[in-house]
Design a binder for these strands. Structure first.
Lengths: 119, 119
DNA sequence: TTTTTGAGATTACAAGTGTAAACTGAAATC
DNA sequence: GATTTCAGTTTACACTTGTAATCTCAAAAA
C-alpha cells in the first residue's frame, strides 16, 4: 500500500522551512513566516495529521516538528503530476515546449551538457 | 481584474478533447471518453460555469461546446505553478533537478540545441 | 397521439482546502 | 498564590473537487 501524502499549497511554506531548517518547535517555525498564527497552527496540525510532518514530545508542552516527507519526494510527485497533466507524461514534450516558449536558452542547455560531461 | 480560471484534474479530459477536436456537442464529447455519463455532464457543466468552455445554442435542445481557455494558457499556468511550488520559479533549478534525477539525457539536450540552431 | 429518450438542470454528499476564531490547561510571570 | 501567556486542540465555515443520482421537458420514435 502506498501512503500518497499530498501537501496543499497553503501547507507548503511550512514544509519548506522544515526542509531547510530540520527540526523546529512551532514558535520557531512561525517566526520564519508571515501570515495569521491561527491559520498557521491549523496548517501545521493538518500536516501532522496527514503524516507529512512528525511531532515528537519535547520538554514542557511543546513538540519538535520534523518533515516526514522529503523535498525530493514532494518534487518528484509534483513533477509527475505536472508532466502528466500538461505533456502526457513526456519530459521531451515539456522541454520542447519550454524551448518554444523561450523559457530555456541554448546557453543554459549547453551548461547542463557540460555539467553532465564533467560528471 | 484577472479571470484566473482553474481546470480541475477531473475536468481536464474534457478540455483535452475540445482542444483536439474544436467544437462539439456533449454526445460527441462523451463518445470520445470513458467514465460515468452523469459525472461527465457535471464536469462539463462546471467548465461552462467557470468560463473554461463556452456553450452556444444549437438546433434542438443541445449546445455546441468550445474550449474558451487555450491549451497553451493551461500549460503556461501549470508550468508557472509547478516551477513556483517545486523550484521557487526557477527554470534553471528545475532543469538541474531533471538532470540529477536523470529525467533528461545529454542526447536530448543536444537535440534541443540543434533545434534552436536550425530555428 | 402516446411513449420513449436523452440533453441539460438540479440536487446530493463526502473530502479536502483556505482561513480563522475560541477553548484549555500547564508553565511562566507577578 | 493569583494571573497572564501561549502551544496545542477544537470548532467553524465557505468553496472546490470527485462522483453521481434524479428531475424536466422537448424531440424522436412507436
Amino acid at each position: 500500500m502506498k501512503k500518497n501524502i499530498t501537501i496543499a499549497d497553503s501547507e507548503l511554506p511550512i514544509m519548506k522551512i522544515l526542509w531547510e531548517k530540520g527540526t523546529l518547535t512551532s514558535p520557531q517555525i512561525f517566526e520564519n513566516m508571515h501570515g495569521n498564527k491561527s491559520t498557521l497552527k491549523t496548517l501545521l496540525q493538518r500536516l501532522v495529521t496527514k503524516g507529512a510532518v512528525t511531532a515528537k514530545e519535547n520538554t514542557s508542552r511543546t513538540y519538535l516538528y520534523t518533515a516526514a516527507v522529503t523535498q525530493q519526494e514532494y518534487i518528484n510527485s509534483e513533477r509527475k503530476s505536472f508532466l502528466q497533466k500538461a505533456f502526457d507524461g513526456s519530459t521531451k514534450k515539456m522541454l520542447l515546449n519550454f524551448v518554444q516558449e523561450e523559457k530555456i536558452t541554448k546557453e543554459e542547455l549547453q551548461q547542463l551538457i557540460d555539467m553532465i560531461e564533467e560528471g
